[in-house]
């Protein structure tokens, strides 16, 4: 356990199937604290599935995933794996923030309530304290004027920034982003990427599935390229992007760039 504390995320030979369809065929990955890991790959390569396995939204069929030294979704006792109950899984998820492609804000709550919901209900923190923190977070993502609005009244970029604030309100130690800018109009992509850049600069550990090569090159500390359920290539973003070693990576990058 001692060496794994220096790793925020560790995936060992992760396999995942949906019925007879094997989507992940042995993924290995290490993300160190404070690192930004970008995940690239064509559609259907299993990027979202892998991300969802990290906070146990999907159960893996084989392999291990550890977050901050803890096995995700299981407990190891006497060399045997025991499934964690709902409560323990929920506890693990609290420290892992997730941002979705389609925002998934709660449409029946105001922006402020969206951000306050989980800290108040899940962590049972005091309302006044949470309100203060939520307001500060929303100010940080540049949305303090939208506090009382409903998500339906915001632009896509604003909604995604609220979603980021909502995840941050739980004070996660790891943030997962699943194509956070893919559903946005081109002129709104920048504002979300800027928010993520700030977050990275503050030392947040992040795994980002994205097609934004510029972001990967500029902000990423590492990059993995997935195809067909395996990691085809990984390394420093600049090198992989400038000088891809594998044919499949080259073909993909030539299409995206």
């Amino acid at each position: 356990m001692t060496d794994s504390t220096a790793e925020m995320v560790r995936a060992d030979n992760v396999h995942k199937s949906f019925g007879s369809l094997e989507v992940l065929k042995g993924i290995d990955l290490v993300v160190k604290p404070g690192e930004v890991c970008c995940v690239l790959g064509p559609s259907g390569s299993g990027k979202s599935t892998f991300l969802r396995c990290i906070n146990h939204l999907e159960k893996i069929n084989a392999g291990r995933i550890l977050v901050d030294g803890d096995l995700v979704g299981y407990r190891e006792r006497g060399g045997k794996l025991h499934e964690l109950g709902e409560k323990d899984v929920a506890k693990q998820r609290r420290s892992i923030g997730m941002v979705f492609q389609r925002f998934n804000l709660f449409p029946h709550m105001t922006v402020l309530d969206n951000v306050m919901e989980a800290p108040c209900r899940v962590k049972r923190e005091s309302k006044a304290e949470v309100r203060e923190r939520a307001t500060a977070l929303l100010e940080r993502v540049g949305l303090s004027s939208k506090i009382g609005n409903y998500p339906g009244q915001l632009s896509g970029g604003q909604q995604q920034r609220v979603a980021i604030a909502r995840a941050l309100a739980m004070r996660p130690k790891l943030m997962l982003f699943d194509e956070p800018t893919s559903a946005l109009d081109p002129e709104l992509v920048g504002e979300v990427l800027d928010t993520m850049k700030d977050l990275a600069a503050e030392g947040m550990t992040m795994i980002v599935v994205t097609h934004e090569i510029g972001f990967a090159r500029e902000v990423g500390d590492s990059l993995i390229f997935m195809d067909g359920g395996v990691v085809v290539e990984q390394g420093a973003p600049r090198e992989v992007i400038a000088n891809p070693q594998h044919e499949r990576t080259r073909a993909f990058l030539s299409k995206v760039l």
Binding site: N55, L57, E86, K87, A90, K91, R93, R94, I96, G97, M98, F100, N104, L105, F106, E117, A118, R121, V122, K123, A163, R166, A167, M170
Partner: peptide, 8 residues
Amino acid sequence: AAVALGMS
């Protein structure tokens, strides 16, 4: 999204 936030 709610489950990912740790809600039961």
